Amino acid sequence: MRDLDGGWPSSDGVAVFNRVYLEVTEEVARRVGTGGFQDPVAAGTLGVLFARRYFAAVDAAAAGRPVPACWRPLFQLRRHPGVRPLQFALAGINAHIGHDLALSVVAACQALACEPAALEGDYDRIGEILGGMEERVREELMPGPDVLDVADPLTHLAGSWSLEAARDGAWGAARVLWGLRGLPEVAEEFAERLDAGVGLVGRCLLTPLGRGE
C-alpha cells in the first residue's frame, strides 16, 4: 500500500482510499502484535485475504482488465474533478466492506476449517477499528464549518452511508454464502448480485458535486 501511495497523485480517488486503508491495516497489525485479538492467526488470515481482494482490483485496473462491479465506480471516476475526497474514501470503504469482506470471511473459514461464528469476535474487533477510522476520515476530509452548512450536498451524501450498516450487511452476506457452499451455482449468483448492489451504492456515493470551495 505504501508503494501504491507513492505512485499516484494525492488527488487520485484510489489514492485517497489507499491512504485510509493503509492506516486501518497498520492499526490492525499493531493490535494483532499486542494481543488485541482473540485469535491472532485467524485475524491475520482474514486480514490478508481481505487485502488481496483490493490488490486484485488494483492489478486488474492497471492491466486494463475488468474490475469487480463494487470497485468499478471508484476506478472509473478516480480523476473526476467534481468528486470530493470524502466521497472517494467512502466509495472505497463501501466496496471493500460491502462486498470483499463477506467473501473474505468465507475464504478465511475455508482456510482455517472453521465456522463463521468462530471469527465473529475478531470480526467485531476489526469493526471497532474501522469505526474509529471512519470518524477520523470524516473529520479530516469534510470541509470545515466555515464552508459547510446543512444544505451542502456533501453533508447529505456522506450522511446517507453507514459503516455499521455495511459491516452488518457483510456479516449477513458471509453467513448466507457459507450456508450456500454446497450449492456453488446459487452461491456464485448471490455473490454476483452482492457485487452489483454494492457497486450501485458506490456509484451513488460518487455523484459529482462540483469542486469544493
Rank of each mutant, 00 (worst) to 15 (best):
Q87T: 08
T155Q: 12
I93Y: 05
A102E: 05
R79Y: 04
A91N: 09
G98C: 03
A113E: 15
A158I: 12
L86A: 07
E135M: 11
P184D: 08
L112M: 14
R84L: 10
E189W: 14
H99A: 06
E140H: 14
G179L: 11
L103E: 07
V137A: 12
L154A: 05
R79L: 15
E128D: 13
E115V: 12
G92P: 02
L90M: 13
F88P: 01
E135S: 13
H156G: 08
E188M: 09
G169R: 05
I126T: 02
I93C: 08
G98T: 03
L157N: 05
E128Y: 00
R167Y: 00
L141R: 04
D124T: 14
E185I: 09
P81S: 01
E128G: 08
S160T: 02
I93K: 10
E139H: 12
A107E: 10
A107D: 11
E189V: 15
G182L: 08
D122Y: 05
P116G: 08
A173N: 10
R125Y: 08
L177E: 02
A170Q: 03
W178R: 06
S162C: 04
P143F: 07
M133C: 13
A173M: 10
A166F: 06
E115A: 15
D168F: 03
R181I: 03
R125L: 12
A108N: 03
L141M: 07
G131I: 01
D168H: 09
E115W: 09
V150M: 13
Q110H: 13
Q110G: 10
P85M: 04
E188N: 09
I97H: 00
F190V: 10
R181H: 12
